[in-house]
Write a protein that binds this DNA or RNA. Structure first.
Lengths: 130, 130
DNA sequence: CTAATATATGAACAGTGATTCATATGAACG
DNA sequence: CGTTCATATGAATCACTGTTCATATATTAG
């Protein structure tokens, strides 16, 4: 006879958000789960940038960057501003900053043995820019 | 002649963390970027659980859950505890709580028009559990 | 030791997603 | 208008990843 967990299941089921909400949450994190996009977001923490500047910075195709910017924009993480032929992208709110910062904290704690004295492996601290 | 952004590039390059660090950060978020894993983490916010209880909760195969738990464990997001034949998983630290909470805040703000009065679509608030 | 329960793991399959290439849109300038 | 620079987009490709199935390991009971 398999063992019983009805008690815990009932308790957890009660407080678990809806499927839809949890999917949305996963989708949001999915966006942060790509090196290119994280780099773009991190760069935009410092300053707004045009598409070709970002492409230059990351050493990637303008097309690749444009595709990723579209994804970031659809998620309301970045917004654009036109100036002649150039389009400048910037962060649309400050959640990016806090989400990224939390991620870093976990990384640092995870690798504490690598940095026993200094708790911050980041030179340019998150949040110091702009 | 293509336009110039040396000034901005130099500034941003200076404060951009290393490639390795940014990859690690993306890898961390990648883990949150899956519905099944988010659900598991969310469930563990409430209480520790054994593998088959989680499988029951999510209506998924024990194998599928086990595979995902391995990924979560490799990232140091969960830890296990043996009790006879049963293995109980629990969150290994509180970063999960804060990261998830930040994600929610962004979602809420993004869909503010859907919940104009009440800013929290979550019944069981994050952080109330355990 | 054998059977039963609980979990882990490896291979295979299917779906997803990031990049590239080619091309389209859009703006400024002569 | 036609050209040039800046960005966007669609199709194709390639790699990655989540699930399933079958099976292995591990613990307890008899």
């Amino acid at each position: 006879m398999p063992h019983d967990h009805e008690a815990i299941l009932r308790k957890v089921r009660q407080d678990l958000p809806t499927d839809e909400l949890l999917c949305d949450l996963a989708d949001l994190f999915k966006i942060f789960g790509d090196t290119t996009r994280v780099k773009i977001l991190y760069a935009l923490l410092e300053s707004e940038m045009c598409v070709c500047a970002i492409a230059d910075l990351l050493g990637m195709t303008q097309s690749a960057i444009s595709h990723q910017l579209r994804i970031l924009k659809d998620a309301d993480l970045v917004a654009k501003r036109r100036e002649g032929k150039t389009i400048y992208y910037h962060l649309s709110d400050d959640h990016v900053r806090t989400i990224v910062a939390q991620g870093f904290e976990h990384l640092i704690e995870e690798h504490l043995e690598d940095y026993p004295e200094n708790t911050s492996p980041v030179q340019g601290e998150v949040g110091s820019g702009v």
